[in-house]
Design a protein around this nucleic acid. Structure first.
Length: 570
RNA sequence: CGGGGUAUAGCGCAGUCUGGUAGCGCAACUGCUUUGGGAGCAGUGGGUCGGCGGUUCGAAUCCGUCUACCCCGACCA
């Protein structure tokens, strides 16, 4: 490709709204253009990256026997009502009606459509197991699109669905898929972890997420490398209290003025204590308008997935509003505490060993110090209700250990769905013995745009993107350095090399634009082309050309005769 | 959905308080010079100042209203 023929514009400055490095560099390097919140156009240079990524994913899917299909993005609402997700999914599902007033939605995922397909395509035990996949645009009306293509509303995703007679067959395909995803991420040279996960809105039995480690990641992962353990903190059950019992003697319960100290942060600072000395009381909505209190240590956070297990609590978990608290239940938020509180209470297990703690007194601007269980407050049920933190102990079947935490970008998610959809869509086949059997399913997703962004998050420098060779927009760029006297000669030599590399199937671009060398170097670095070949009069006169790899600092000279060997073997 | 902010040339911004000829840098275009890390000189084009309404002799600027975009929060009482 001649770069003079691509409409490619680069910028020295990123738009002010670009927050994370991948978003800044994608915009600066002319890979994407924003259309509206969470909607991006892939420009010619950027789409080359996407197409290469898609092909890597496609190759790995085909290797494990996946069959590529393409399903519609607009989906009939009737299918979603059949699965029950029309009501479950919430406003992320973009709904609309057609001219006949029929309900439709834009597909955020395709379990319904593929189930409908499987109902007609799969008849006999001979038809399974099988796996369908597609690479397609999804739409999710995200509450807050962010970070460029990392969390956009419209995005490209590879989604795959497998059908089986029994869980053993499902497990086999699941493991194939797990390996395929591992291969994909390895081919992109990404540093990632496979973590056990919650299946969320998709539903199902077992699931794992693939997280690319990056500080800009939106998820928190608890891990222990020694024990080969990694899990989304949401799923981690905390086995051992991080707080051992102490023999502190109970002090006298005492009321304190705490004017306007509504947050734990302010309160702890005001009283000169650690946040862990404070018992936090959170009031959630219950199913029948009856509030429920959760007590937790001041330095801990509620795990919504665990809290939603509390009987009669509203799902999804929702705190009551300031207004309702005051008007309906006479609660002064910020000063609520278990002392004399008349509503149903549950406490996190880690509060059990707290002694002489601080809590609200259910009056404006007042807390108490030296509160103690039993003496002052009847024991509530103690449950594991909090999010795991770095330093927490995790108990597995065989052993226990301490975890660290890291941030991750969720690029892939694989599920063993079981029969959730096959039952609502009556997916049955005839078995060998002529009996009817209900199918079981798996589903597997990987975000294409998010993979591209992840690569940039993990590898970049002050000059721009450092792509892995497998997905760079071009693998090699040739830059001729000319002046008016040697122009024809240098360009001839450059095009000779260009055509030679094309004949060897090398993905090569030549920078034939009317620019000074500095601009060409800057652009090549910014867009992250892995190999740069520079032709200059000085080196050509010795029969040499200069090679520089994007991820190394120093360039080196080679004889032109050695070009093929150098490029093809690198 | 709640809170905060922004909207002026393709991008980054000033001008708004105190109403009076719409500016700067980068980018683009033309010419000349230059050609190993985002060139220099000279010149050129590009704006209904987010939309609508109001106040005023006069509005980017003041008032009202709508819209879009961004940030924080939406579980920390």
């Amino acid at each position: 490709m001649k770069l003079s023929r691509i409409n490619w514009v680069t910028y020295k400055e990123a738009p002010a709204e670009a927050e994370v490095i991948s978003q800044q560099l994608m915009l600066r390097a002319g890979l994407i253009k924003k259309l509206a919140s969470g909607l991006y156009t892939w420009l010619p240079m950027g789409l080359r990256v996407i197409k290469k990524l898609e092909n890597i994913v496609r190759e790995e899917m085909n290797l494990i026997g996946g069959q590529e299909i393409l399903m519609p993005m607009a989906q009939p609402g009737s299918l979603w009502k059949q699965s029950g997700r029309w009501d479950q999914f919430g406003p992320e599902l973009l709904r609309f009606t057609d001219r006949h007033h029929r309900d439709f939605c834009l597909g955020p995922t395709h379990e319904e459509v593929v189930s409908d397909l499987a109902g007609t395509l799969l008849q006999s035990y001979k038809d399974i197991p099988c796996t369908f996949y597609q690479i397609q645009t999804k739409f999710r009306d995200e509450i807050r699109p962010r970070f460029g293509v990392m969390r956009s509303r419209e995005f490209i995703m590879k989604d795959a669905y497998s059908f089986h007679l029994d869980s053993q067959s499902l497990e086999e395909t699941y493991l194939d898929m797990r390996l395929a995803y591992t291969n994909i991420l390895n081919r992109l040279k990404l540093n990632f972890k496979i973590v056990t996960a919650n299946s969320g809105a998709i539903g199902g039995d077992k699931s794992e997420e693939f997280h690319v480690l990056a500080n800009s990641g939106e998820d928190l992962i608890g891990y222990n490398t020694e024990f080969d353990y990694a899990a989304n903190v949401e799923t981690i059950n905390i086995a051992v209290s991080s707080m051992t019992e102490n023999d502190e003697l109970p002090g006298a319960l005492k009321e304190v003025e705490t004017k306007d100290k509504k947050s734990i942060e302010d309160l702890a600072k005001f009283l000169g204590v650690e946040k862990s000395k404070v018992l936090k009381t959170l009031i959630y909505k219950g199913v029948n308008d009856e509030p429920i209190a959760i007590l937790i240590r001041g330095d801990h956070e509620i795990n919504p997935l665990k809290a939603e297990q509390i009987p009669n609590i509203k799902k999804p978990l929702e705190l009551i509003s300031q207004k309702d608290a005051k008007e309906k239940f006479s609660l002064e938020l910020g000063f609520v505490g278990p002392l004399g509180l008349k509503i149903k209470m549950y406490a996190d297990a880690d509060t059990k060993n707290m002694k002489n703690f601080i809590c609200g007194l259910n009056q404006s601007d007042k807390h108490v110090i030296n509160a103690n269980w039993q003496r002052d407050i009847d024991l509530p049920p103690f449950l594991d209700l909090r999010l795991a933190q770095s330093g927490d102990h995790v108990q597995t079947e065989t052993t226990s250990f301490v975890i660290n935490t890291a941030r991750g970008i969720e690029v892939g998610h694989i599920f063993q769905l079981g029969r959730k959809y096959s039952e609502s869509f009556s997916l049955k086949i005839t078995d060998q013995d002529s009996s009817e059997k209900t199918l079981t399913m798996g589903c597997y997703g990987i975000g294409i745009g998010r993979l591209a962004a992840s690569c940039i998050e993990q590898k970049n420098d002050a000059n721009g993107i450092i792509w892995p060779e497998s997905i760079a927009p071009f693998r090699v760029v040739i830059i001729p350095i000319t002046n008016k006297d040697n122009r024809n000669m240098i360009e001839d030599e450059s095009f000779k090399i260009y055509h030679f590399l094309i004949s060897k199937n090398v993905d090569v671009a030549i920078d034939d634009r009317e620019l000074r060398p500095g601009n060409k170097f800057a652009d090549a670095d910014l867009v992250g082309i892995p190999i740069r070949i520079v032709l200059s009069e000085k080196n050509l006169s010795k029969g040499q050309i200069e090679i520089k790899y994007r991820d190394q600092n120093e360039s080196f000279l080679i004889d032109i005769d050695n070009l093929e060997k150098t490029i093809l073997e690198s």
